[in-house]
């Protein structure tokens, strides 16, 4: 059961990610990204992180990706056209495959054959996570809040139509 769910969503992650990267129409790419993110959320659940899964869907697909959609519609980035000329594409594909293989080899050497026992109730409890986030890691948590505030301010300043700008 668990293996079947994993295989299904792992395949979904990879296929939809390829569509994100290769599809010419930006709207399709973004919609495909939504599928990738939701599938990753399912993998989070399988790994015993239901809270992260919910946050992933809520924040990533519910907010960040909508922002992307907005900007795409606003700037009318229709039809990215041909992505790049031939040689560059081949080199890029080679680099990507090479890097992935490198990672795979590293992971294989270190983690191959390590089994994961089934999850227990205590593994997925929310209370310890809350204690960690608002106790041990209170300072980083607050700093992230500050960072978000700074980002909102910066984004507002950047995207605001400057009235006295000569165009």
């Amino acid at each position: 059961m668990e293996v079947a769910v994993f295989l299904l969503f792992a395949a979904l992650v990879l296929v939809s990610a390829l569509v994100v990267v290769l599809h010419r129409n930006p709207i399709y790419a973004v919609m495909s990204l939504v599928v990738t993110l939701v599938s990753i959320a399912v993998l989070f659940v399988l790994l015993g992180a239901p809270f992260l899964a919910a946050i992933q869907v809520l924040v990533y697909t519910g907010a960040i990706v909508v922002l992307f959609l907005f900007v795409i519609m606003l700037l009318n980035v229709s039809g990215d056209g041909s992505t790049a000329f031939g040689l560059q594409k081949i080199v890029a594909a080679g680099a990507a495959v090479g890097f992935s293989t490198l990672l795979l080899v590293l992971f294989w050497g270190r983690f191959e054959g390590l089994p994961l026992p089934p999850l227990e109730e205590a593994d997925v409890a929310l209370r310890p996570l809350a204690r960690a986030l608002l106790g041990t890691y209170l300072l980083p948590f607050e700093m992230v809040g500050l960072l978000l505030l700074a980002a909102v301010t910066a984004a507002t300043v950047l995207a605001r139509r400057a009235d006295r700008e000569k165009t």
């Binding site: 399988l46 992505t83 992935s100």
Partner: peptide, 26 residues
């Protein structure tokens, strides 16, 4: 259950796909 390596393999492949996208999209 699913061994840990499988998850890492998905992550590695996904990272590769992302790299590809950064390199080829204009």
């Amino acid at each position: 259950t699913v061994p840990i390596f499988w998850y890492l393999a998905v992550a590695a492949a996904l990272f590769g796909i992302g790299t590809l996208g950064v390199l080829i999209r204009r």
